[in-house]
Design a protein around this nucleic acid. Structure first.
Lengths: 101, 101
DNA sequence: GCCCAGGTACGATGCAAGTCGTACCTGAAG
DNA sequence: CTTCAGGTACGACTTGCATCGTACCTGGGC
């Protein structure tokens, strides 16, 4: 678990959003890869999936025809306590800073 | 305060180290810019200072002949609670993952 | 006044990352 | 079996970033 890789992975809006949406589900349900509403093409999504996997943030399960992402919440909370809360918080208040400024 | 910028800033080893060292000081003392032991040239350090400033992580004070970095701990803790602990922890255990693996 | 050390500004360079097109594979539906 | 949708693999392109050299500015010490 490399903080450099984790931060690099989370520096991208698309990836941060995916992790945040996964983290927002308190039940840790798997999420179909296609269920993320990203403004990028398929090939780019695949690339993001890989980055998230290699950062150790998610696991990907193959359903034959489709795949699903599962958040590695335990690992993340162990190595980076509090990190997921940050992401979930941003989901709810994407422009919290501007609102006060 | 943009999480994207923050994570991007913290994705770099040199910058993460600087912030971590600042955060490790419980007294929030200023730190002379030259006091960081980084394996990069002056121009590169200046660049990193700028990135950290623009991410809202540090403030830079000019002492005429030299400059000093001050950690914006309040802002960070308010917007990203727990973040600094992660960095300080990594300082102490740079290869915690490998040690167990 | 002169020189030096600490930082900055600007431009150049090399590499990594994000994006995409296309071809391909796989399993489901018909 | 044929078709289709979801993902992947590979390569190409573009942009951004880390790094550095050099020139320059500033204040301190001699």
């Amino acid at each position: 678990m490399d903080l450099g890789k984790v931060f690099a992975a989370l520096a991208d809006d698309s990836r941060r959003r995916m992790v945040a949406e996964l983290a927002a589900d308190s039940e840790d349900r798997e999420r179909a890869c296609g269920s993320f509403d990203l403004p990028v093409k398929k090939a780019t999504r695949t690339h993001h999936f890989r980055v998230l996997r290699e950062a150790g943030l998610v696991a990907q399960r193959d359903h034959g025809n489709g795949s699903a992402l599962r958040l590695l919440r335990k690992d993340i909370e162990q190595h980076c306590p509090g990190l997921l809360q940050l992401l979930v918080a941003e989901l709810g208040q994407p422009d919290e800073g501007k609102a006060r400024a």
